[in-house]
Design a protein around this nucleic acid. Structure first.
Length: 666
DNA sequence: CAAGTAATTGTTTTT
DNA sequence: CAATTACTTG
């Protein structure tokens, strides 16, 4: 087949990007311009021209994106099985594979990935050794210490300076903290524990080594990076070490969609790359296949950024102008959105083609109540994830110990789940277990408080068994049965949590490599409980509720952006710096450009001061500053009937007398 | 030293 | 209204 299916339906610019050869290629792609299609077509074309799949590395931002890209490339290529062998995943996931493979080069006996809350636990467990546990004086929390550590590592600024600059309340204990953070690093190395930063830094170190780096570099001929506007300096270093001259490198991004600045990402990396690599080809995609021109007119007004991309619709039909919907308050907003979703559904638009986007997870709380009341099914993305719930993490701790008995944090976690074992015992026992105590469980049991001995003995026997076992299904079963009684004793609402544990154990027992699965889930947790629920939900129809961050890269026919008020979008947390404000503007741009046909932006006039409280005071809220005159000029402005004039008093409710039941108690 | 009870906080976004 | 923290009691 002369030209594979990959060429179908590409426009000139996309085709140029797909057919481009070895030189460095930067694709500046506006929202909805077929970026994913172009990238997957390029992969398919490489495969079609006999590039072995394992010589292609495709770096994406989420696991979901990686999976969808490899399967789309497979669909476009004549050998779908080959496409599945492409190296694909997030920076962190690929880093984990490389680090696990090169553990001995890094002087690590084991490789276990710890997440940010494990970091806090580990610091918690270690701080007493450094005299930071006296409860008399106010001391910085372990969370703060983790922040200091991470900032120092990511910026290369010494911890003392970081504290002096940004954490002045740590100054009194600077010596002890510095010492703690140094031994924290040593402890992680001794136990084979790697936090998220360690993964990237270790990968970079391997690439920078003359010997190992050369072999790693030779592994891939083609490196493709998606969402390049959201990489940080360490990731830039990795990409540059993989492709020093830029040969075989393709990066795709849109500088107006950088929304992870708080994590060290900078849009400048995308712009800089084209300058730093001599002979780089820049292809700009500015024809949107997604949105109507009416949606794009608004997006173009809001769009910040330095690449002069103005999107033009590549769709023949005229669309409706985006609507600006003023609501009286947050309850009114929730009702109005639910009404709109139902009305569209009645007109034939499936729920799965509609989404509600918000700045923070809590902005959707009232809407969730409204949807539940009306029996409208929905799935919420973002916010606290299923895997981050305490009970699932307990099970994961057991899995991690089965693989790496030196995992001190997981021991600490499981030990505190036992009755009669608190922080103090857990700390000393965890250290002894991580030092090889599992070889002689009886000794550990003897050192525990008498009331804990029976339960602890059972736990240790089970985990020692699990550690010796290789069959995934039986490891999972042993761990699940070991953790079960602990959870039952520890959580009063155990019944509610049991389903989650069983479901996660089922998913885990289907895996080929349990340790890799656990690492994968730690790095990029599945954030929807429904993802583990099996088939029943698959053919159902539901509305998507999502934070704007989690909606990145996705699209829906109808999009509702709620809480478009100053203080929410832009978040009042971001108002202290100019950069913070521009990032909020990019975030708003991302939200608007998720819409294909229908876009509605809601601005409640009054908002609760406190998102979860029913008794919260309501205060006046102004529409987002991003909805300026230029933006309004391309929108239809609708007012809800109930909307009071600003400043007008709320109507006084009629008084209803509830009869006293005093005669019952005479 | 652990566990229960009372008081007091709160809230971005996520690999 | 949670969920975490501080204080008390066994």
């Amino acid at each position: 087949m002369g030209e594979g299916g990959w060429a179908d339906g590409l426009n000139e610019a996309q085709r140029a990007a797909v057919e481009h050869d070895r030189g460095p290629l930067v694709i500046a792609a506006g929202a909805g311009t077929g970026k994913t299609r172009t990238l997957t077509a390029r992969v398919a074309r490489l495969l079609e021209s006999a590039v072995p799949p394992e010589r292609i590395l495709l770096l994406t931002f989420t696991r979901r994106a990686a999976a969808s890209m490899t399967s789309r490339a497979a669909a476009l290529s004549s050998d779908p099985a080959a496409a599945q062998r492409v190296w694909g995943g997030t920076f962190h996931a690929v880093a984990h594979r490389i680090v696990a493979e090169h553990a001995q080069h890094l002087g690590l006996a084991e490789v276990t990935v710890i997440d940010p809350s494990d970091v806090v636990d580990l610091l918690d467990l270690m701080r007493a050794e450094h005299g930071l546990d006296s409860s008399g004086t106010r001391l910085p929390t372990s969370q703060t210490l983790a922040d200091v550590y991470s900032r120092a590592v990511n910026t290369g600024i010494p911890a003392r300076e970081v504290m002096a600059d940004q954490f002045p309340w740590c100054l009194d204990h600077m010596d002890a903290i510095t010492e703690l953070l140094r031994s924290y690093g040593a402890r992680k190395r001794a136990r084979g524990l790697l936090d998220f930063d360690d993964l990237l830094i270790s990968w970079r170190a391997l690439l920078a080594d003359p010997d190992v780096g050369a072999r790693l570099r030779a592994r891939w001929d083609w490196v493709l990076v998606d969402e390049y506007q959201d990489v940080n300096q360490v990731q830039v270093d990795i990409v540059r070490l993989l492709c020093p001259e830029g040969d075989g490198l393709t990066v795709v991004g849109d500088d107006a969609q950088t929304i992870y600045g708080f994590r060290g990402a900078s849009a400048e990396h995308l712009v800089d790359l084209a300058h730093e690599l001599p002979g780089a080809t820049v292809v700009t995609l500015d024809r949107s296949f997604r949105s109507t021109q009416q949606v794009l007119d608004l997006a173009n007004v809001v769009r910040p950024g330095t690449l002069p991309i103005q999107l033009t619709a590549d769709r023949p039909e005229r669309g409706a102008r985006p609507e600006l919907v003023a609501c009286a308050n947050a309850d009114d907003e929730a009702r109005t959105v639910a009404d709109a979703i139902l009305a569209a559904h009645t007109d034939g638009l499936e729920l799965r083609r509609q989404a509600v986007l918000m700045r923070t997870g809590s902005h959707g709380n009232l809407l969730e109540v409204e949807l539940k009341v009306r029996n409208i099914p929905y799935v919420k993305y973002g916010g606290i994830s299923y895997l981050e719930t305490a009970h699932v993490r307990d099970l994961i701790a057991a899995f991690r110990i089965a693989d790496n008995p030196a995992d001190e944090v997981s021991w600490y976690r499981l030990l505190t789940r036992h009755r009669a074992i608190g922080k103090v015992h857990a700390r000393t026992l965890a250290t002894r277990l991580a030092d090889g105590g599992l070889d002689d469980p009886a000794e550990i049991v003897a050192a525990a408080p008498a009331a804990a001995r029976t339960a602890l003995g059972a736990t240790l026997t089970a985990l020692a068994n699990a550690h010796r076992t290789t069959a995934v299904a039986s490891v999972v079963e042993t761990c699940r049965d070991a953790v079960g009684p602990l959870l039952r004793a520890h959580y009063p609402d155990w019944a509610r949590r049991q389903d989650d544990v069983v479901r996660f154990a089922e998913a885990a027992s289907r895996q080929r490599d349990l340790a890799a699965f656990v690492a994968e889930q730690t790095i990029d947790p599945t954030n929807v409980a429904g993802d583990w629920a099996g088939k029943p939900t698959l053919d159902e129809d539901w509305v998507t509720l999502s934070t704007i961050h989690s909606a990145k890269g996705l699209e829906w026919d109808a999009v509702h952006v709620i809480r478009a008020c100053d203080g929410a979008i832009p978040s009042d947390m971001a108002l202290t710096s100019h950069e913070g404000l521009v990032e909020e503007q990019r975030l708003f741009y991302v939200a608007l450009t998720r819409a294909r046909d229908t876009l509605r932006v809601y601005t409640p006039a009054r908002l609760p001061t406190h998102p979860t409280s029913f008794h919260a005071r309501h205060v006046l809220a102004k529409p987002s500053r991003f909805l300026d005159d230029r933006a309004r000029a391309v929108m239809d402005v609708a007012h809800q009937d109930q909307a009071p004039q600003p400043g007008a008093a709320a109507p006084r409710p009629t008084r209803v007398e509830v009869p006293t039941l005093d005669d019952l108690f005479a």
